[in-house]
Design a protein around this nucleic acid. Structure first.
Lengths: 278, 278
DNA sequence: ATTTGTGAACGTTTTCACAGCA
DNA sequence: TGCTGTGAAAACGTTCACAAAT
């Protein structure tokens, strides 16, 4: 009981599980597409396929919202679009600020899907004085000095951080102090925030590393899981450029090792006795 | 038993839970920072704080990798960096292609963290002939016609899709047919892939919607959950611009409704008798 | 004296399978 | 007959709490 409180104690919604909330936008997107094609009703099976989940999960998810379907028929598309939008809070308009107008920030500012559903870019903010006044996505970039005023004047409660990692925590603190209570963080760093502030993180590098993990497992799948050359699968592969990688990957040694008590370290269960580098 | 197989049946790793895999990059990042500061050892408590998790979880996670710590002391930083890198497959080099060099694709190409850990941008690909040959991030953009050849020649197994939603599925299919088995999808659409191909999705719009959900709950927290004006919390808020939003949010009506059997729909438990729009 | 590693308890999420309703 | 809504079961993930190790 050292620290006591967990990082996000109040994640439990007014009934709706977090996992369900995370899928609602998916359903909404699928439903919107159906709505545009003027499809009047949809079954859980069809909608689930469109959203990339299975139908039992979808029905369970919807059951947390209420009984919005009709047995034997399915769901009314327009009605569900409205109910989910409402549940997600998209029937109101959310002004958003983007801080850090580099490559990524500019890309986000230009991203169309932003404005589509209740979100409105209220301001673009950057620390570089040379950026100030420059138009990005048809909007003048404002200097960080204005941050607090912008947040307050526009009633912004959602902030997007697209700064370098080093600046992120400080920007975060200023946003929070000015009244922002939800942050979407693109900087590759862990943000520390007070209770009551939500942070979601988008991290390219982490996603790639997770993919690499699975990719590696695929490669060592049929083989004896050793001498992992960059074996590709599916179709023919030349691999006529990855030799440097091979030199790295082949070796089961070459681990950095520091000092003292390096004895009796063991890997998982029945594997090789573990990598014991010099 | 209609469809039968789940979407990703073989997610279960050789022991390591998916949730743990998703955190390993976080630990790795924290450890790398410690390594750069020449910190020799670290306790689970310290490392957990740096990574933004709790120490019990971290220890459990590490226990799936093996016994790499020393009781009474902690973990050797360099050694752990190596072990996690190895587990994630980062001791080898992963050539990656980025398809779709718009704002976002260009931002990704310029993203430094890309090259840092085992990933190397092997090619930038775009469907626009006008883009072909143009340098982005010091690299000439190649035309989509070359896609298959690029994948094959470079032994690419990881592809990043940053195209518009409409093009994503088709690009995905070409990537997979050419030998790519892991895809990072930035397009706001559900990709359908054959078994054995991993897809991870990064979706700005979904993240914002999840934040909006929680933001909405915060607003209606103290109040009677009705007449939800855009009440902000924490510090003073002018809200001198969000009036349009208020008009939308106040109303508990205004739901679109289609046709027939709209009777006896009920919301969750003891709520208002449900929104019954005209 | 500390701190890891891990069974056991607990909580959450997914899946199953079918009753209930149109 | 067809499809939703939901208890019950299973799978998965997190936290607790302490024995084992140094």
């Amino acid at each position: 009981m050292a620290t006591g409180r967990t990082h996000r104690p109040a994640t439990r919604s007014r009934g709706i599980p977090e996992a369900t909330v995370a899928r609602l936008p998916l359903y909404l997107r699928a439903l919107t597409a159906l709505s545009e094609r003027s499809v009047p009703t949809v079954s859980s099976e069809e909608l689930a396929t469109a959203a990339g989940v299975n139908s039992a999960k979808l029905r369970k998810d919807f059951s947390y919202l209420g009984s919005y379907g009709t047995r034997g028929v399915g769901y009314d598309v327009e009605y569900l679009v409205y109910q989910i939008s409402r549940e997600l809070g998209l029937t109101q308009d959310w002004p958003v600020v983007i801080v850090g107008i580099g490559n990524l920030g500019a890309a986000l500012a230009n991203y169309g899907g932003f404005a589509s559903r209740g979100f409105r870019v209220a301001a673009l903010i950057d620390a570089d004085p040379a950026m100030a006044g420059k138009p990005v996505a048809g909007m003048p970039v404002q200097h960080t000095d204005e941050l607090e005023k912008i947040i307050t004047d526009n009633g912004v409660s959602i902030g997007v951080i697209a700064t370098p990692a080093g600046a992120a925590q400080q920007v975060c603190e200023r946003l929070v102090a000015a009244g922002v209570t939800s942050i979407l963080n693109f900087a590759p760093t862990v943000l520390t925030v007070p209770d009551g502030v939500d942070v979601r993180k988008v991290d390219l590098s982490i996603e790639l590393q997770i993919l690499a993990f699975h990719e590696q497992r695929k490669a060592g799948e049929g083989a004896a899981a050793e001498a992992a050359s960059a074996a590709e699968r599916g179709s023919a592969v030349g691999a006529a450029e990855v030799d440097a990688a091979d030199a790295d990957a082949d070796a089961d040694v070459d681990a950095p090792e520091a000092d003292s008590a390096a004895a009796n370290r063991k890997g998982p269960d029945g594997d090789v006795p573990a990598v014991m580098p010099a």
